[in-house]
């Protein structure tokens, strides 16, 4: 809810000359990008473009082959494991299938990060977890097991868990995958509301055009064949006037419902 323009703030994540891949096989190279505080940015591209590989590097599961990734003043590409632990408190992640722990209730799933990383008494942890579930409109499912939830509800519960420690950055991996258009639109609306009310930065890995045009402040297109970042900017402007034929083709696919553009706050 900051009134300061996102462009003038220190970036939430800063990528400088980043190359990612597996082993010595480079998929994306020389990626330079600033992810601004409080923005919703989509990172997309075709299948095999390197989206998931990039996400695993941003979330510190893997280290880039080259370059720097700065999160919270620490370069996660070269940081020691101890430093990475503190960086991991700076973000939450929602995985494609939710990745909720099946042996715990939804409430216990949301309480788990607080149990591990805070000294809050159980009663307080439970109150916070209930509030987080309320934010994603899932308070009534607190006592349910993840297997009792629909796909959309599991993803909302996973967002509540990602929000558990009030991390300023949330990564979402293909949030629309496996959801019907209505549920997907509801999820987009939730992401937008959380961004507006809590000022959380959302980094979303997705190629879902309906979501991109509905809620993205910016869209970064990556392509493995071209070796890295193709273009970044307002997706509506890119769709209508990008000089890159690949970007225009990608953003002009037929049959996509295009909603009104959100105003970056």
């Amino acid at each position: 809810m900051s009134t300061v323009s996102p462009e003038t703030l220190e970036p939430a994540i800063r990528l400088r000359g980043v190359s990612v891949g597996y082993g010595s096989h480079v998929i994306l190279k020389d990626l330079t990008l600033d992810i601004r505080q409080g923005e919703i940015i989509f990172i997309g591209g075709g299948s095999g473009a390197g989206k998931t590989t990039l996400l695993s590097n941003l979330t510190t599961l893997n280290r880039p082959i080259a370059g720097e990734i700065w999160i919270g003043g620490i370069d996660v590409a070269s940081a020691a494991e101890d430093a990475l632990q503190s960086v991991r408190r700076q973000f939450g992640v929602m995985y494609q299938l939710g990745a909720l722990f099946n042996s715990m209730t939804v409430l216990e799933n949301v309480m788990l990060p607080m149990e591990e990383f805070t000294n809050l008494p159980r009663e307080a942890r439970e109150e916070v977890a209930r509030a987080k579930l309320g934010l994603v409109d899932l308070a009534s499912a607190a006592a349910k097991m993840p297997s009792e939830l629909s796909g959309g509800m599991q993803k909302r519960a996973a967002i509540a868990r990602a929000l558990a420690l009030d991390a300023p950055i949330i990564f979402l991996d293909e949030p629309s995958a496996g959801l019907d258009p209505m549920t997907s639109a509801d999820l987009d609306s939730l992401i937008q509301t959380l961004n507006e009310t809590l000022g959380v930065t959302f980094v979303i890995i997705s190629h879902e055009l309906a979501s991109i045009f509905a809620i993205a402040h910016r869209f970064a297109m990556i392509d493995g064949k071209r070796g890295g970042l193709v273009e970044v900017g307002d997706p509506r402007v890119m769709r209508d006037s990008s000089s890159d034929p690949l970007v225009r083709k990608f953003l002009n696919r037929q049959g996509v419902a295009i909603h009104s553009a959100p105003a970056p706050h």
Partner: peptide, 20 residues
Amino acid sequence: EAHARLLEMASRGQDRTLRA
């Protein structure tokens, strides 16, 4: 207004009788 919105969202559907 902003806090009211957050409080309204967070208190939706709370039912503490729903325990295992």
